[in-house]
Computed example of a mutant assay.
Amino acid sequence: MRLKRATFRHIEAEIYAYWDTLKRIEELRREIILSGESPVAVAAGQEGYAESRVERRGTRLADSILLREMERITKAIADTYARAREEGRKVIWIKYGLAIDWEPPPEIKAQMEGRNRFDLTADQMADIASMDRATFHRYRSGFVYGIAERLGWY
């Protein structure tokens, strides 16, 4: 079974935005935790249970659907990346600019310097990675499908 084109593109967009998503996760956490920075007041809840603003903030943090989904996606990307081999990581870095706890080889960095990865063709990217175009696509697709599998989208 193949991924739908829109799903494949969506996963690629999430890969491109990986670092921005991590920053946004931290911002959301900070906003939830720091919202209503006033002294803690205890009031009776609807069911008669004591409820405080701290408890409500904690519940909002735990229940934030957006936050959980963003964390789930970034974890799937990081886990799939951690399983990738050296050649796969080269492809991922050339295509998406993603390097998690890994440094691309200096010769590949030098070849990519001053180039916009969005303007490169698949053949040019494969040449930079010193591999055949089909191999390049296999690594790229394998990474995206691995993420889709971890997310349950495939």
Rank of each mutant, 00 (worst) to 15 (best):
E107M: 02
L61R: 06
I15Q: 08
R68G: 08
I65M: 09
A41C: 12
D101I: 05
G152C: 09
A129S: 06
E14A: 03
R117L: 12
K75G: 03
I15C: 11
A78R: 08
R83L: 01
E31C: 04
A13G: 11
I128C: 00
P106C: 14
T74E: 00
E107W: 01
P104Q: 13
T74D: 00
W102G: 11
A62Q: 04
A44L: 13
L34F: 12
T7C: 08
D119Q: 15
V40H: 07
E47D: 15
A76P: 02
W19A: 09
I32F: 01
S141N: 15
P39A: 14
V40P: 06
H137S: 07
V42R: 03
L34P: 07
G146R: 12
Y81Q: 02
I92L: 10
R89I: 08
A50L: 15
E103F: 05
E55M: 04
R115M: 06
E87K: 06
Y18D: 12
T59C: 00
E107C: 00
T21A: 07
D63H: 02
E69A: 02
R5L: 07
T21H: 07
R85F: 00
Y49F: 01
V91Q: 03
A78I: 05
I33K: 14
M70E: 01
A13Q: 14
L3M: 15
R60G: 06
A44M: 12
L66Q: 09
A78E: 12
I25R: 01
L22R: 15
R29P: 09
R60N: 13
W102N: 13
H10P: 01
A17Q: 08
P39L: 14
R30K: 09
Y145I: 04
Y49G: 02
L98C: 11
M125S: 07
L3H: 15
E27D: 14
A76S: 01
Y16L: 12
L28E: 07
M125A: 12
L61T: 10
I65E: 13
G142M: 00
W153I: 14
W19E: 13
W93H: 08
I33H: 09
R140T: 01
H10C: 02
R115Y: 01
I108F: 10
G45Y: 07
D20N: 03
R72Q: 02
M1A: 06
